[in-house]
Simulated scan of single mutants.
Amino acid sequence: MPSLQDLPPFPSDVLTAPIARISLQSLLASDPSSCAATLEACRTHGFFYLDLSSTPLGTSLLSASTFLHEISHNVFNHDLPYKTAHDLVKGVSLFGYKRAGTVKTTDPTLRPDSTEFFNIAKDHLHAITPSRSYPAEITAPETWALLQAFSRDAHEVGMLVLRVLATQLGILPAAFVSKNEFGQKSGDHVRLTHKPARVPDPAAALGLPSHTDFGSVTMLFNWLGGLQIQSHDPARVGGWEFVKPVEDCAIINLGDAMVTFTNGVLKSAKHRVVDAPGEQGRVDRYSVVYFVRPHDEAVMEAVQGFEHLGGKGRVAGKFEPKVPEGEVLRAGEWMRQRAVQMGS
């Protein structure tokens, strides 16, 4: 990742979320305390730092994220017509370009967002389904190959997190892993994002309004502040706290699918993106994300052992899936409905 030392410092006088820092090396070694901390993080804050240093897998991800950060500068620097030639089709597919200005139906303020992004499908990268068009900077052979490696490595980390959580919950890892198989058609994707520096009127727009993620596991690489999650401090419950970027760490959170699979035992936490605090707000914010989502044919219901927990599986965002009577919703349709409900 680009060194945080090369950017304006994150200010010391803003509230930051006290989320856990867990090392990838310790999870790979099945360290009991680290595995227990992972479950605790996913039942409370819903977010944790994953320290990627000291492992070949982590080093590969850090190196790839640095390259993709540089590519993002180039691809978002084009004029709008160049980018909108690769627009995603709302309500049909999440893959392609999303311009800034979307109003999410889950945001009570109805402020347009100020973030643009490209979603690059794992299925396209690995020829699981035919690819759509993407900008030349993305489809260049060197970048495409790196995106293939990055998506494979990030998915592997996501599966590790799911195996750890399953073991800690006393169920077989296959209960979660089998619903998120890499080689199956799914909504898995790499996202390159760009949020311009602080806008003149912050009341007019928000980087990304409050939301929860759709899928199973999200892995975020970012270099500037701006991400916020809701506080668990009894004096500030529901208030917003920054997640400070940490050198050599990705940020991991769960999505709504894991709430459904565990009937509410695991948490998909609300989060949003605002202007970075202090002098960081004067710098454009780029991030690189990988989303692990259930493959399209995965059944969206609680896994064995979690069926009878009193209906705690309601996901955040007041999402009520529309299910034909007598049928069980599959993940492909579930994700499509989530996308429509979110307004993006």
Rank of each mutant, 00 (worst) to 15 (best):
R236W: 15
H194W: 13
A174D: 15
Q228C: 06
T193Y: 15
L208P: 10
H189Q: 13
G255A: 06
D248P: 12
W223P: 06
A205P: 09
A204F: 01
H211W: 06
G170T: 04
S210N: 13
A140G: 02
G238E: 08
Y134A: 03
S210C: 11
H211E: 09
N253P: 09
L192P: 02
S133Y: 11
S186H: 01
G158K: 11
A145I: 08
E137Q: 01
K244V: 13
V259R: 12
H189W: 11
I171R: 08
E137I: 00
I128S: 04
Q148P: 12
S131H: 03
E241W: 03
H194L: 09
L208I: 15
V161P: 00
K179H: 09
F214D: 14
A235E: 07
G183P: 08
Q168D: 02
S216R: 00
F242Y: 11
L224H: 05
P141G: 03
P209N: 07
D213M: 03
T143I: 00
I229P: 04
V217R: 08
N263E: 08
Q230W: 10
P209W: 00
L192D: 03
V217H: 06
P234R: 05
A166R: 09
V190T: 10
N253G: 04
T193D: 14
A197D: 04
E247C: 07
R152I: 10
I128W: 01
H232N: 10
L208M: 15
R152H: 11
D201Y: 10
S151E: 02
G158P: 10
D256S: 08
L165M: 07
G255F: 00
N180S: 07
A140W: 04
A136I: 12
S151F: 05
D256M: 10
F221G: 03
G255R: 01
H194Q: 11
L220R: 03
T218N: 09
A175C: 08
E137M: 02
G158T: 07
T129G: 00
V157L: 10
F214L: 14
V177L: 07
K195M: 14
D188R: 13
A149W: 12
V164L: 04
P196L: 07
A154D: 03
V243A: 07
I171T: 06
D248R: 14
R198C: 08
V161I: 13
R198A: 09
T129Q: 03
S210A: 15
Q184A: 15
I229M: 05
A149F: 13
L192K: 00
N222M: 15
G226F: 06
H155I: 03
P173R: 06
E156Y: 09
F182S: 07
P196W: 02
V177A: 12
L192C: 01
V190S: 02
I128R: 01
L192S: 00
H155G: 02
P196C: 00
R163P: 10
A154S: 11
L162W: 07
P209Y: 10
L208E: 12
T143W: 04
I251R: 02
T129L: 05
G207K: 05
A149C: 10
A204H: 00
P141L: 09
C249K: 09
A203V: 12
P196Q: 00
P130L: 00
P209Q: 04
V190L: 01
F261R: 04
